[in-house]
Design a binder for these strands. Structure first.
Length: 309
RNA sequence: GGCGCAGUGGCGAAGCAGCUAACGCAGCGGUCUGCAAAACCGCGAUUCAUGGGUGCAAAUCCCAUCUGCGCCU
């Protein structure tokens, strides 16, 4: 049996300190970083996403985003006007990982987007059906009940497991079925293509919430509002900003005068905390994660053991 | 001191005699098959300031007390 390639995954809620830990491990263990963050992929969305302050440099004839001397992939490369997805990320990340491995380095997948990380690390088979905007627009008009009934007819198996109130999921399922003429294939819980060390950053909730609050005031003082109003001036619709969520959603509403400054801070604070909780419920069910407590001292030892073992 | 209005879960707020006291926010728990910082689901007052009363039936009517707000002297 061929040995699987080794991969490090650093996960945890927002504001837990993933990025810095990833860089420090990359330095110690000859690693490079693949960012797994569905918003940091976008160029120009910097302060609001908490992107590391790297710069594009030419290395081996290619442009690479570098922060503290460590190459970062899947970050800062796409116009916010463009659509991206878990499936596209999966391919791009896989390519980056292969490239890192070929050069004998340790790939470190780091980010807050659980769905994307799982897609890569677990090698999930996402149906290769591209979004069909016209169909989506059409289905969008139907009620969840109608969509569900439709799915039941076309793919009873998928209908059995799906959240019947969630239009977005219902529509995607129908999109797949209608495009392939086949039922939605199983996710394929085949063995992961990698040998992965999962490190999770765990904080006591109150401490994490404090970090979230202070990080928010910090971002505001760094000019986050300006960043977002600039994005809008460059042609990003309010709707689009709203859909990006969190800072982009609430600052956008503030800029439209739908919220006062105080309301914006209050509601955004709540939203970020809700997000952190959702992230935790995602990770909680992954039994392979080793949860590290605050100064994350264990990370070095565990990584060392993993690499040698 | 007098008159008026109000007092419903942590907060905001419906209900103004008769379904198991709406809903929003916050809180807690959860889902997740190419939008995932998104989308979606579940949980909370045996009780309506307190004490009496009227009614088959009261958060809803009456009386008293307490508290808050407003006006008047």
């Amino acid at each position: 049996m061929p040995k699987k390639d080794k991969l490090l995954a650093i996960v945890g809620p927002t504001a837990s300190g993933k990025s810095e830990l990833a860089v420090s491990l990359a330095k110690k263990f000859n690693g490079e970083i693949i960012s797994a963050d569905s918003r940091q992929i976008y160029a120009g969305m910097d302060i609001g996403t908490g992107k590391v302050e790297g710069a594009w440099k030419k290395i081996r004839g290619r442009k690479i985003y570098v922060y503290k001397g460590i190459p970062h992939y899947c970050i800062d490369f796409l116009s916010p006007k463009k659509q991206f997805s878990a499936g596209l990320f999966q391919r791009q990340a896989q390519k980056a990982i292969d490239d890192i491995l070929e050069r004998g380095k340790l790939p470190i997948l780091c980010g807050g987007t659980g769905h994307w990380i799982d897609a890569v690390v677990l090698g999930q088979k996402l149906p290769e059906v591209k979004p069909n905007p016209a169909l989506r627009r059409k289905l969008e008009k139907l009620s969840p009940e109608k969509l569900f009934i439709r799915l039941q007819k076309l793919d009873p198996a998928r209908a059995k497991n799906i959240d019947r109130f969630n239009k977005r999921r219902l529509i995607r399922a129908l999109e797949i079925v209608m495009s392939t003429g086949q039922p939605v294939p199983a996710l394929n819980s085949k063995p992961s293509p990698y040998e992965c060390l999962w490190l999770g950053l765990l904080w006591p909730q109150e401490a994490l919430y404090k970090r979230i609050d202070s990080r928010l005031t910090e971002r505001l003082s760094q000019g986050m509002v300006k960043e977002i109003s600039q994005l809008h001036k460059q042609g990003l619709s309010w709707k689009k900003l709203f859909d990006f969520g969190l800072e982009y959603r609430y600052v956008g509403q503030y800029l439209q005068k739908k919220l006062t400054h105080d309301e914006m801070i209050e509601q955004l604070g709540y939203a970020i905390k809700h997000y952190a909780k959702r992230q935790m419920t995602w990770w909680k069910r992954n039994r392979n994660i080793q949860w590290l407590k605050t100064p994350f001292k264990q990370a070095d030892k565990l990584t060392k053991k993993f690499i040698l073992g």
